[in-house]
Design a protein around this nucleic acid. Sequence first.
DNA 1: TATATTTCGGATAAAATTGTCTTAAATAGG
DNA 2: CCTATTTAAGACAATTTTATCCGAAATATA
Lengths: 144, 144
Amino acid sequence: MFSKACEYGIRASIYIAEQSMVGKRVNQKEISKAIDSPEAFTAKILQQLTKNNLINSEKGPSGGFTMETHAIDKIKLSNIVSAIDGDEVYKGCGLGLKKCNEKKPCPAHDKFKIVRDELKKMLETTTIKELTFGLKDGFTFLKR
Amino acid sequence: MFSKACEYGIRASIYIAEQSMVGKRVNQKEISKAIDSPEAFTAKILQQLTKNNLINSEKGPSGGFTMETHAIDKIKLSNIVSAIDGDEVYKGCGLGLKKCNEKKPCPAHDKFKIVRDELKKMLETTTIKELTFGLKDGFTFLKR
DNA sequence: TATATTTCGGATAAAATTGTCTTAAATAGG
DNA sequence: CCTATTTAAGACAATTTTATCCGAAATATA
Ligand code: FES
Ligand code: FES
C-alpha cells in the first residue's frame, strides 16, 4: 500500500504528536526506537516531513522534533502520505494507466474508484491527533 | 497500490480472457502490445500466471496464451494479485507492523481495516469476465 | 526430418527503494 | 569561547523491483 518510508513517516508523526501533546521534544534516536525503524533512514524521512512543515525541528542539545499542538488536529494522514509517497496511491489508476481517466477508464475503474475514494476519504479526514488517543492508554502500538 | 508486475499481470489476464472468449490464442508480443508493457518483463509475469494455473500456455508456432472459458468467470482479481504480489496489500498492516493484529493494533488499525476489507471484498468478488465486458465495445481500455 | 515459431528458464543489467556513513551547521550550557 | 549534542545534507552501499537477453525445449507444419 505505502512505501516503507511512508509507513515510518506516519508512525514517527504519531509518536512525535503524542509526545508534543505532553510538552516533550523527541530526537531521532528516541523516535526510531519508539517506532522500531532504522535510525539513519528515519532521519531522512524526518527531514522530508520538516521541509513540508508537518513537524518542526531544532538543532543542538535538547533539540529534536515537535509537532505544533494547534496543528495536531489539523494535520491529516493524507498530508503525511502526499509528502512522502505523493498522491498516486489514492488518485492514480489501479491498473497503472497514467492518470485515472473517467472518459477513458480501465476495465476495473468503477470497482477501483469505490475503494480508492474510500481510502482517499479516510486519509483526508483522519487526523494525527485521533491516532494518538489509544497510544498512551496502551490500546494501540507503534511497534511490536 | 500494486506492483508494476501485478498491474501488467491484471491487464494481461483481462486481455487474454477477452481473446479467449472469441476463441483466440494470443502470444507474448500481441499481449504486451495490447496492454503497452515491456515485452520480456511481461513474459516473466505470464510464466508466473501459468505456474499458478490462472492461464494456459502452449509452445510452438500458433502457440500462445489462453484462459479456459469456463474459468473466466471463476477467476477473481484476488487470484491474480495473490499470485504476483501476495496478499500483504489486503491483509497486512497499513503502518507496516508485521501482521495486522486485532489484539495489538496499530493506531490506524480501525480506520485501515474498513478500507482494506472493502478492497479485499472487491478483489475477491470481481471476476476477470466482468472486466472484459466494456473492452470490445470500446468503453474501457487496457492502454492509453 | 528440417525449420520456424513460441514459451521456458536462467543470467544479467538498470533503476528505484531502502539503508548507512560522514561531515557540516546550529545551538545550549558550562 | 569551547564543547557536547543534535539536525541537515550529501555521498555511498545494499537490496528489491523492473527490465533485458539468450539459449534450451516444445511443437506445428512443410
Ligand atoms: S482508469 Fe483505472 S482506475 Fe480509473
Ligand atoms: S495492526 Fe495496523 S492495520 Fe491492523
